[in-house]
Design a protein around this nucleic acid. Structure first.
Lengths: 203, 203
DNA sequence: ATATTTGTCAACCATATGGTTAAACTGAAT
DNA sequence: ATTCAGTTTAACCATATGGTTGACAAATAT
């Protein structure tokens, strides 16, 4: 503890802002609503975070920092590709079930402002595919996997895991199920998705 | 032509609104910006569409009506599952490459207002999974496909095809490629994705 | 005890924004 | 030429919104 005030209020604000921003997005969120959510005066938001933009960025970075390690686990772990896929699929779905707004929030805001991702890229710990690429090539050469481009496989893994959360209203409507059935479907995907992928790529 | 004015201005407005709403979303869009985009007085927007909400709904329904038939092709066509998957994957990616904002827009706005999907569900031509379900069960019984739940397969098909467009800024950053390389990657997916799915489900 | 910094609040401000109005223009029908 | 419905515009309006200020309280330091 060198200097960290870490005032309680500051944390309460960030927490309230998280809820509001993740529900409504930057454009839909109102400073007053965040203040109400935090049960605090609106001026406090500016006292601690200066502006809506900066408060938003604090929330965003926070959210991103939560997601990045999840993805790094599949990109940089030491286990075999199959193990990684099984672990990731199960862990990721568990994780997001606890934070269902996270992926939608990040994807939505990144689309709104694509330059934003450049700032993230600077940071250490930003997910990078290089190591994964090498591993895939090795396992293909060893005959464990069928030939596939690491990039495509990675996109597929992300897509199969993340998409259901991002598109849940659409899926619920098309498949014609309620929240409860959807939850079950997602729960089943913890193994379904891994099997689906492995099935496809195993030699 | 019973009564259809279909005034040119009305169309110009809808077109401008499409561009602005699909870029910025309902909350981020400004009526003035739409008016500027249409090179027209702001009052015209209200003259033809009454309110921002109604103009937005016109745009949204329009967008949805464009997407729905694409999905129906995989749900209701007469061809075999494998054919459907190959056709859909190729057609859908071609289609969206021409309208890259469509899926993001629809998903984003549906998340903002999940009740909205209920109104869509009423309409005829709303994608429905029932027929597809039966077909999958038949092909499984015939030994053409490995056992899989139709719902999960459908989600997987949607995910693999749609996700790259929705999450493009994220993917470009992780895979570390520029717009051109991303385009190529997506182009490759026209066959890659179909192969990936078929590989996994074929008995 | 006193001064100083830090935190909190109600009231306020400038501007942006969705929406309205009343007048003017247009072009076809009479 | 006049009328009239439909169209277009500039000027407005009410409200919402991000942000600021100055007074005051509560810690913290001297």
């Amino acid at each position: 503890m060198t200097k960290t005030k870490d005032s309680k209020t500051e944390h309460i604000i960030l927490d309230a802002a998280k809820r509001v921003f993740q529900n409504k997005g930057m454009d839909g969120a109102r400073m007053q609503e965040i203040a109400d959510e935090a049960q605090i005066n609106k001026a406090m938001l500016h006292y601690y975070y200066r502006s809506k933009q900066l408060l938003f960025e604090a929330v965003f970075k926070n959210a991103f920092a939560l997601l990045a390690p999840q993805l790094n686990s599949i990109l940089n772990d030491e286990s075999s590709v199959e193990e990684k896929i099984r672990n990731f699929t199960s862990n990721y779905i568990s994780f997001i079930s606890k934070h269902p707004y996270l992926p939608t929030f990040i994807i939505q805001e990144l689309n709104r402002n694509p330059d934003f991702v450049l700032q993230m890229k600077e940071k250490k710990g930003f997910p990078n595919i290089e190591k994964f690429k090498k591993q895939i090539d090795v396992e293909i050469r060893e005959g464990i996997l069928k030939p596939i481009k690491a990039e495509q496989l990675f996109i597929n893994i992300m897509a199969l895991n993340i998409f259901p959360f991002v598109a849940s209203p659409l899926i619920k409507a098309f498949v014609n199920i309620d929240d409860k059935a959807f939850k079950q479907l997602v729960e089943d995907r913890k193994t379904e998705v891994a099997d689906f992928i492995i099935n496809s790529i195993k030699a």
